[in-house]
Every structure is written in structure tokens, then in C-alpha cells.
């Protein structure tokens, strides 16, 4: 399925993602890493650690509603994967991101901007394996 090339909206959205990440560092001294935040919610260390993560996640979840209020339409969201693929992919994402200490936000945005060598290796690795996976699924197995 074709999707429209949206360089301006994507760049603008990227600026906001960056701003949110910087504010979390400035205010709470924390890395905006979705894996760490989710993991901290699932296995909380104490009440305070649980509380700020809950507030942060609630704020994130309010975003589509705010967009709907402002534009009259929910953000575009088309899921090509079947429910089985969503579950298999989700478990592998959870296992891998937890083992590799981060995902697109933690290693990708925050790690690269810190010039972390670990994050450069992580991002290069997951971009390559994601591209190979999509190639195999679409062009070899033809799902």
C-alpha cells in the first residue's frame, strides 16, 4: 500500500518529539525512552517512579484526542499486519528492546543526540534487521 510522502509534517512532528524529549530531560532528568518508561510502569521500583511515568504516558495518550479536537480527524493509522503478526512482532519487540536497553526513542532519538556509541550500534542494527524483515515478508514470502 502506498503512503503519501510527507516531509514537512514528518519534520515538524520530529521537532515536537525532540522538544518533548528535551523537556523530560530538563524537568525530570530522564531519557525519553519508551521501552524504559513502559518497563518502569510494568515493574515499578517505587511510587514516585510509577507516578511520573503514569503522567507521561497519559499525556502521550491524550495526543490523538487533541489532534481530533483540532482537526476533526484522528491521526492516520493503517495496520497492514494480521493479529497474529501483531502478537508475534510485539513479543519480539518487547524481548528485544528490553534486552538491547532501548528502542527507536531511547537509542534512536536520545542516544544518537548524546553521540552514544552503543546507541549508534543499536540503531544501525535494528534499522538493518527491520528492513530485511520487511523485505522478506513483502518480497520473498509475499504476505
Amino acid at each position: 500500500m502506498e503512503t503519501a510522502f510527507t516531509p514537512i509534517a514528518s519534520f515538524g512532528g520530529g521537532l515536537a518529539i525532540g522538544l518533548g524529549s528535551v523537556l523530560l530531560m530538563l524537568g525530570l532528568g530522564r531519557i525519553m525512552g519508551a521501552t524504559g518508561i513502559l518497563s518502569g510502569l510494568a515493574f515499578p521500583e517505587n511510587r514516585e517512579e510509577f507516578a511520573w511515568r503514569t503522567a507521561l504516558v497519559l499525556g502521550m495518550m491524550l495526543a490523538p484526542g487533541l489532534i481530533y479536537a483540532a482537526t476533526g480527524a484522528m491521526p492516520e493509522l493503517t495496520v497492514p499486519a494480521s493479529p497474529t503478526m501483531i502478537v508475534i512482532g510485539g513479543v519480539i519487540v518487547g524481548l528485544g528492546a528490553s534486552l538491547g536497553s532501548g528502542c527507536t526513542s531511547g537509542h534512536g532519538v536520545c542516544g544518537l543526540s548524546r553521540l552514544s556509541v552503543r546507541s549508534f550500534v543499536a540503531v544501525l542494527t535494528f534499522m538493518v534487521t527491520a528492513a530485511i524483515t520487511v523485505f522478506l515478508i513483502r518480497h520473498v514470502f509475499g504476505v
Partner: peptide
């Protein structure tokens, strides 16, 4: 780091969601 990241990419390529996108998308 490398093995975990490799797995993460595979899962991302299968599902099309990553955690940082899925949390707001839940809304």
C-alpha cells in the same frame, strides 16, 4: 545490545509499531 537490537528490528518489521509510537497510538 546487538542481539536485543537485532530482535527489536525484526519485531518492528513484523508488527509496524514500536513502543514510542504505540503508547500515543493507544489514544
Amino acid at each position: 545490545l546487538v542481539g536485543g537490537s537485532a530482535l527489536f528490528g525484526i519485531g518492528w518489521g513484523i508488527a509496524g509499531f514500536c513502543p514510542g509510537a504505540a503508547i500515543p497510538a493507544l489514544g
